[in-house]
Amino acid sequence: MTHYAMVIDTRTCIGCTDCVDACRMENNVPEGLCYDWVVEVTTGRYPDLKTEFRSERCNHCSHATCVEACPTGASQYWNGSNIVVVDATKCTGCKACIAACPYDARLIMQPQGYIGKCTFCVQRVQYGMDPACVAVCPAHAMHFGLLDDPTSNVSMLLAERKNYTLHPETGNQPNVFYLR
Protein backbone atom coordinates (compact mmCIF):
# COMPACT_ATOMS: atom_id res chain seq x y z
CA MET A 1 0.00 0.00 0.00
CA THR A 2 1.20 3.51 -0.76
CA HIS A 3 1.06 5.11 2.64
CA TYR A 4 0.64 8.89 2.58
CA ALA A 5 0.79 11.00 5.70
CA MET A 6 0.39 14.63 6.61
CA VAL A 7 2.56 16.04 9.36
CA ILE A 8 1.61 19.36 10.93
CA ASP A 9 3.98 21.21 13.20
CA THR A 10 1.96 22.78 16.01
CA ARG A 11 5.06 24.65 17.10
CA THR A 12 5.08 26.81 13.99
CA CYS A 13 1.39 26.72 13.02
CA ILE A 14 0.00 30.20 13.56
CA GLY A 15 -3.65 29.35 13.03
CA CYS A 16 -4.04 31.68 10.06
CA THR A 17 -6.61 29.35 8.34
CA ASP A 18 -4.84 29.72 5.00
CA CYS A 19 -5.08 25.94 4.63
CA VAL A 20 -8.87 26.16 4.77
CA ASP A 21 -8.85 28.95 2.24
CA ALA A 22 -6.49 27.25 -0.22
CA CYS A 23 -8.44 24.01 0.03
CA ARG A 24 -11.69 25.73 -0.77
CA MET A 25 -10.21 27.49 -3.78
CA GLU A 26 -8.28 24.50 -5.14
CA ASN A 27 -11.19 22.11 -4.83
CA ASN A 28 -14.01 24.51 -5.76
CA VAL A 29 -15.66 23.80 -2.42
CA PRO A 30 -19.12 25.38 -2.46
CA GLU A 31 -19.65 28.50 -0.42
CA GLY A 32 -20.36 27.98 3.23
CA LEU A 33 -18.77 24.52 3.27
CA CYS A 34 -15.26 23.36 4.07
CA TYR A 35 -13.16 20.21 4.00
CA ASP A 36 -10.71 21.33 6.68
CA TRP A 37 -10.73 23.59 9.70
CA VAL A 38 -8.40 24.99 12.35
CA VAL A 39 -8.75 24.29 16.05
CA GLU A 40 -7.24 26.56 18.68
CA VAL A 41 -6.63 25.05 22.11
CA THR A 42 -5.66 27.26 25.03
CA THR A 43 -4.75 25.81 28.40
CA GLY A 44 -3.65 27.36 31.65
CA ARG A 45 -4.52 30.56 33.44
CA TYR A 46 -3.42 34.10 32.68
CA PRO A 47 -0.50 34.76 32.51
CA ASP A 48 0.67 31.16 32.44
CA LEU A 49 -0.80 30.07 29.13
CA LYS A 50 -0.25 27.74 26.26
CA THR A 51 -2.04 27.98 22.92
CA GLU A 52 -1.81 25.38 20.22
CA PHE A 53 -3.27 25.50 16.72
CA ARG A 54 -4.21 22.42 14.79
CA SER A 55 -5.26 22.26 11.17
CA GLU A 56 -7.70 19.35 11.00
CA ARG A 57 -9.27 17.36 8.19
CA CYS A 58 -10.00 13.79 7.14
CA ASN A 59 -7.30 11.58 8.62
CA HIS A 60 -7.20 9.22 5.64
CA CYS A 61 -7.18 6.37 8.13
CA SER A 62 -5.43 3.13 7.34
CA HIS A 63 -8.46 1.46 8.91
CA ALA A 64 -11.15 3.77 7.65
CA THR A 65 -14.54 3.05 9.21
CA CYS A 66 -16.19 5.19 6.54
CA VAL A 67 -14.93 2.92 3.77
CA GLU A 68 -16.11 -0.06 5.80
CA ALA A 69 -19.55 1.45 6.28
CA CYS A 70 -20.16 2.30 2.65
CA PRO A 71 -22.76 -0.05 1.13
CA THR A 72 -21.92 0.71 -2.49
CA GLY A 73 -18.17 0.97 -2.58
CA ALA A 74 -18.35 4.69 -3.35
CA SER A 75 -16.14 5.45 -0.36
CA GLN A 76 -12.89 3.85 -1.30
CA TYR A 77 -9.13 3.95 -1.09
CA TRP A 78 -7.59 5.67 -4.06
CA ASN A 79 -5.30 3.62 -6.21
CA GLY A 80 -4.02 1.25 -3.55
CA SER A 81 -3.12 4.06 -1.15
CA ASN A 82 -4.65 5.18 2.12
CA ILE A 83 -6.22 8.23 0.49
CA VAL A 84 -9.96 7.97 1.05
CA VAL A 85 -12.11 9.35 -1.73
CA VAL A 86 -15.78 9.18 -2.65
CA ASP A 87 -16.77 8.18 -6.16
CA ALA A 88 -19.84 10.32 -6.71
CA THR A 89 -21.08 8.10 -9.51
CA LYS A 90 -21.58 5.33 -6.96
CA CYS A 91 -22.63 7.39 -3.96
CA THR A 92 -26.29 7.16 -2.94
CA GLY A 93 -26.02 9.79 -0.25
CA CYS A 94 -27.08 7.29 2.44
CA LYS A 95 -24.78 9.07 4.93
CA ALA A 96 -23.58 5.88 6.60
CA CYS A 97 -20.02 7.15 6.12
CA ILE A 98 -20.82 10.43 7.87
CA ALA A 99 -22.12 8.49 10.85
CA ALA A 100 -19.07 6.24 10.68
CA CYS A 101 -16.44 9.00 10.72
CA PRO A 102 -15.13 9.66 14.24
CA TYR A 103 -13.63 12.95 13.05
CA ASP A 104 -16.85 14.32 11.53
CA ALA A 105 -14.81 15.12 8.44
CA ARG A 106 -17.48 14.40 5.85
CA LEU A 107 -20.30 16.51 4.54
CA ILE A 108 -23.19 16.40 2.11
CA MET A 109 -22.54 18.28 -1.11
CA GLN A 110 -25.75 19.99 -2.04
CA PRO A 111 -27.61 19.87 -4.34
CA GLN A 112 -25.62 17.05 -5.93
CA GLY A 113 -26.08 14.97 -2.80
CA TYR A 114 -22.86 13.04 -2.85
CA ILE A 115 -20.62 13.00 0.18
CA GLY A 116 -17.72 15.42 0.07
CA LYS A 117 -14.48 15.36 2.02
CA CYS A 118 -10.80 16.13 1.96
CA THR A 119 -9.11 14.08 -0.76
CA PHE A 120 -5.54 15.05 0.15
CA CYS A 121 -5.90 16.86 -3.22
CA VAL A 122 -5.48 13.59 -5.04
CA GLN A 123 -5.60 15.47 -8.34
CA ARG A 124 -2.32 17.08 -7.28
CA VAL A 125 -0.86 14.07 -5.48
CA GLN A 126 -1.14 11.98 -8.67
CA TYR A 127 1.48 14.30 -10.16
CA GLY A 128 3.67 14.23 -7.07
CA MET A 129 2.53 17.64 -5.83
CA ASP A 130 1.62 18.46 -2.23
CA PRO A 131 -2.02 19.02 -1.28
CA ALA A 132 -3.09 22.65 -1.64
CA CYS A 133 -3.16 23.24 2.13
CA VAL A 134 0.41 22.03 2.53
CA ALA A 135 1.58 23.96 -0.51
CA VAL A 136 0.13 27.24 0.74
CA CYS A 137 1.11 27.20 4.43
CA PRO A 138 2.95 30.51 4.91
CA ALA A 139 4.53 29.25 8.13
CA HIS A 140 5.83 26.10 6.42
CA ALA A 141 4.19 24.17 9.22
CA MET A 142 2.60 21.48 7.06
CA HIS A 143 4.30 18.54 5.40
CA PHE A 144 3.11 15.74 3.18
CA GLY A 145 4.76 12.60 1.92
CA LEU A 146 5.14 8.86 1.97
CA LEU A 147 5.50 6.96 5.22
CA ASP A 148 6.78 3.93 3.28
CA ASP A 149 9.90 5.87 2.48
CA PRO A 150 12.07 6.27 5.60
CA THR A 151 13.92 9.16 3.96
CA SER A 152 10.81 11.21 3.20
CA ASN A 153 10.42 14.44 5.12
CA VAL A 154 7.34 13.14 6.94
CA SER A 155 9.11 9.95 8.04
CA MET A 156 12.11 11.91 9.25
CA LEU A 157 10.00 14.46 11.11
CA LEU A 158 8.03 11.72 12.84
CA ALA A 159 11.25 9.96 13.76
CA GLU A 160 12.82 13.13 15.16
CA ARG A 161 9.96 14.85 16.89
CA LYS A 162 7.38 13.89 19.48
CA ASN A 163 4.03 13.61 17.78
CA TYR A 164 0.47 12.52 18.21
CA THR A 165 -2.62 11.73 16.20
CA LEU A 166 -6.24 12.54 16.99
CA HIS A 167 -8.21 9.84 18.81
CA PRO A 168 -5.97 6.89 17.94
CA GLU A 169 -8.12 4.87 20.33
CA THR A 170 -10.81 4.68 17.66
CA GLY A 171 -8.61 2.08 16.02
CA ASN A 172 -8.92 3.93 12.75
CA GLN A 173 -5.15 4.42 12.45
CA PRO A 174 -5.28 8.07 11.41
CA ASN A 175 -2.55 9.43 9.14
CA VAL A 176 -2.55 13.12 10.01
CA PHE A 177 0.17 13.61 12.60
CA TYR A 178 0.79 16.61 14.83
CA LEU A 179 4.26 17.50 16.00
CA ARG A 180 4.41 18.79 19.55
Binding site: N27, P30, D87, A88, Q126
Partner: peptide
Protein backbone atom coordinates in the same frame (compact mmCIF):
# COMPACT_ATOMS: atom_id res chain seq x y z
CA UNK B 1 -24.03 31.46 -10.86
CA UNK B 2 -23.25 27.81 -10.32
CA UNK B 3 -25.54 25.76 -12.48
CA UNK B 4 -27.33 22.67 -11.33
CA UNK B 5 -25.52 19.55 -12.33
CA UNK B 6 -27.05 16.22 -13.14
CA UNK B 7 -27.00 13.78 -10.26
CA UNK B 8 -24.92 11.09 -11.92
CA UNK B 9 -22.05 13.55 -12.39
CA UNK B 10 -18.69 12.59 -10.93
CA UNK B 11 -17.34 14.46 -7.92
CA UNK B 12 -15.30 17.62 -8.32
CA UNK B 13 -12.06 15.79 -7.57
CA UNK B 14 -12.88 13.17 -10.19
CA UNK B 15 -13.32 15.85 -12.82
CA UNK B 16 -10.07 17.48 -11.76
CA UNK B 17 -8.11 14.25 -12.15
CA UNK B 18 -8.14 14.67 -15.90
CA UNK B 19 -8.50 18.42 -16.25
Amino acid sequence: GGGLTACSEPAEWQKMMTE
